Amino acid sequence: TGEEYIAVGDFTAQQVGDLTFKKGEILLVIEKKPDGWWIAKDAKGNEGLVPRTYLEPYS
């Protein structure tokens, strides 16, 4: 389980392990790392690192 967040901007993977997403996408945050990069999963089940500055809590 995780917390749902909504993307407030588009993000394109910079390196292997990053997750590309579009503004408005709902992501499930699995782990919040202290460096500001969180592990998240998208609706298709893809998992990767995302920058927390692009996310806001979804309710």
Rank of each mutant, 00 (worst) to 15 (best):
E3L: 06
N46S: 10
E4L: 12
E56F: 10
W37G: 05
E56K: 13
T53K: 11
E31V: 12
E25A: 12
G48C: 02
K22M: 09
T1I: 12
T20H: 07
W37K: 10
A40Q: 00
F21G: 02
D42F: 01
E3S: 12
D42V: 02
G36K: 04
G17E: 06
G36I: 05
Q14N: 11
V16A: 15
Y54C: 08
D18V: 09
Y58G: 06
I30A: 03
V50P: 01
D18T: 15
V29H: 00
E4C: 05
L49D: 04
P34G: 13
G9M: 14
A40K: 00
G17M: 06
G48M: 02
L27Q: 00
E25F: 04
D10F: 04
L27R: 00
R52M: 12
D18S: 14
I30R: 06
L28G: 03
K33I: 07
E4Y: 13
F11P: 01
L49N: 12
K22I: 13
L28V: 10
V50R: 00
V50S: 02
P57G: 05
P34F: 12
E25R: 02
N46P: 01
Y58L: 14
D42S: 08
L49Q: 10
R52N: 11
A43M: 09
F21A: 03
D42K: 05
Y5I: 01
F21E: 00
K32I: 07
D10A: 07
V8T: 11
Y54A: 09
K32T: 06
Q15I: 08
A13G: 12
P51T: 04
S59D: 11
G17F: 07
P34L: 13
I39W: 15
Y54M: 13
K33H: 11
R52F: 15
A13Q: 07
W38L: 03
N46A: 07
R52G: 07
K33F: 15
I39D: 02
P51N: 12
K41H: 09
G45Q: 06
N46M: 09
A43V: 12
K33N: 14
V8E: 03
T12R: 08
G45N: 09
P57E: 09
G36T: 04
I39M: 09
R52V: 12
T20V: 04
K44E: 13
W37R: 13
I6Y: 06
A13H: 04
E56T: 08
K33P: 06
W38P: 00
P51W: 08
R52E: 12
D18F: 15
N46R: 08
V8A: 08
G48S: 01
S59V: 13
V50G: 01
L28W: 11
L55K: 01
S59C: 05
Q14S: 09
P57T: 07
A40T: 03
E47F: 14
I39N: 09
V8P: 01
G9D: 13
F11V: 07
G48Q: 01
L27M: 08
T12D: 13
E47C: 06
P34D: 14
K32M: 08
K33R: 10
L55N: 00
W37P: 05
G2L: 15
L49R: 11
A40G: 05
K44R: 10
Q15C: 04
W37Q: 10
V29W: 01
L27V: 07
P57K: 09
G24M: 03
R52H: 10
G2T: 14
E47I: 15
L19R: 01
L28A: 07
L27K: 00
G45I: 01
F11S: 02
E4H: 11
K44Q: 14
I39V: 12
V8K: 08
V16R: 13
